[in-house]
Write a protein that binds this DNA or RNA. Structure first.
Lengths: 193, 193, 193, 193
DNA sequence: GATGAATGAGTGTTCATTCAT
DNA sequence: TATGAATGAACACTCATTCAT
């Protein structure tokens, strides 16, 4: 990568970083591109040099963030076969970026199809891991013979619900932390024999 | 009611009906008041004769619809103490207006605090009924001693999740219908002994 | 005047009375006709039954008020030939309706030509009386041989200036009262030998 | 200043120039921002790129014009201690921009407090100079011991009155010119021994 | 004569995107 | 590559006036 390319990547990163801040604070949908550019310390037009339009910026932002998230998840999840442990780790990782995931939960239904599919596709990797662990547990006769995809939708759906309405559930602090134990309890109830 | 009043109510109803159509099709947040007026077949200004501002129209619309919904729910729910039956009826009523509830699930996190509270407050009546029936079941030793509010959040959260991402789950037809049995199964699993 | 005519006049009076209140409070230009009708306790359309348009209402209102004013002025002014006394009385009468005259001073330049002419014409009667008294004084060698119309423009112009910027000169209370003595002093200086 | 900045300043100047034209013709209050943009030959939105809102445009316009006015005034006023001469110069400068000052006199009472204060504050510099020259004249026993602020209010109030009702006093031509001599005569009468 | 529902042109302001510099 | 001035369609909301009841 020559100097020019390095510089370009640097600018791109600044924009994404600013977009992430804005995303967490009040969401991307309700933020003007000019505001994002301003926070990134670049000209308004520069933003459209790196991203053909606002949507592309959102796609890129979420791609980067969710990739990081996947990475984190894999590290903490893949080591163990204990579903309770895995779920606990999963909640911790979400909690660490709760502002981000709260906005994501709220805005997800409003994204263009392509972007929404992309995000849900990313999620499916994690689902897959949960699925396998539970399946193995069922084979080993440790868990009940349930419909695993549906059970997982209950899990992820509920977490999503909490996140999207975070403002209504807690005034400040972490919503995930508040319901951490209950989420685990109910989910264990779902899969127990 | 004289002709004047009838005519006024008719116009108001036309506006609400148009707003509801628009609400189901693409949501209220992303629809201009001028578009709603146009669909209602009235002048743009007329809309503001009946509602002081856009928010009020949304509030009125949701109030009317959710009141109808509550009425329906009460009729089908109050007659029985069988939680499975109640849940089935509940899903049926939602399915009957699935377009409406899908938009509601998507837009709810974006409403002003007051309106969101109002809607969640309406939901709480239904929650309350579920709560009581389950509580009685626990007392009668038919259900497990679970944390009822949290179990209900799993239920309503999951339904909300399905509704809000309806477009991603089904191309056409009813999402509620598709997952009807699974929702019931999992929830029964949660409360079973 | 039969009953119907009486009723009509009554409604008309109510509208004018409401318009006057509104006029004093925040001016007619910045008040919607619907607001005036509401304050008068009549339907919005009724206003346009009595006055073909907003301007006509203003014309009528000012005509009535200024006629009353003229009446008052004549009673207190015509009795005496002492210009100082006359001026004092004049200021008192204005002070008694200072809210009204303050709005008038502010809005006068924005009225349609015809209305403005009408109002200035009314004022010219009063000017005329001042003129005659001063002229007589000059003939009797009590006052200096000044350009009377111009001297009067100084007087009325200054009073008008104080009234129109009342808000900038006093926070509450009467602006006329505050500068009462100074106005008289300076004007006497103008006409003195 | 590079081409970019030159171009921007040029656009800004075009907007202010158009605003000034409009201001003189029919006042700013009764002119839509879209009209001003159209007259400036720029897009409506461009106006809000240069000024955050309509008020700011008015403030800027008046600030620029009144600064120019102050500059002119200082040059012609400060050189002499002869009050008659000063007043003559003052009237000439106003006459040179009579259309502007006529609108200002009409709209001044309708501006937001802050703006009105700003304008009256600017005027106070000129008042101050008149005050000092008259005061010195009184000390030197050339003028009568009058209440100077009040005398000046008579002067500026009268000029303001003429300007605000210019349309009623003259059909075309200069109102200041028409009453030029009389204004000076009466004011000299006020301060003479 | 009185009503008040309906009108629709008009308002100030926002913002994703373009393009000359 | 980066800039930022310019665009113009879009937005929620206002109000004098009309006219069927």
């Amino acid at each position: 990568m020559n100097k020019r390319q390095t510089q370009k990547q640097f600018t791109r990163d600044k924009i994404i970083a600013a977009a992430k801040m804005v995303f967490i604070e009040k969401g991307i949908i309700n933020t003007a591109t000019s505001k994002i550019a301003e926070m990134a310390g670049v000209a308004h037009g520069t933003l459209f040099l790196h991203f053909p339009n606002k949507d592309s910026l959102v796609i890129e932002l979420l791609d980067v963030e969710l990739a990081k998230f996947d990475e984190n998840i894999k590290q903490v999840i893949l080591g163990t076969d204990d579903i309770k442990n895995i779920l606990e780790q999963y909640l911790n990782v979400i909690q660490a970026e709760e502002g981000f995931f709260s906005t994501l939960a709220r805005e997800l239904p409003h994204y263009k199809d392509e972007l929404r599919r992309k995000i849900l596709f990313r999620e499916s990797f994690i689902r897959e891991h949960f699925h396998q662990v539970i399946e193995k547990g069922i084979e080993q006769d440790r868990y009940a013979k349930i419909n695993i995809p549906c059970a997982l939708t209950f899990l992820f759906g509920t977490i999503n619900y909490y996140l999207s309405l975070k403002k209504s559930f807690v005034q400040e602090g972490s919503i995930i932390n508040k319901f951490h134990d209950q989420i685990i309890d109910i989910f264990m109830k779902i899969i127990q024999k």
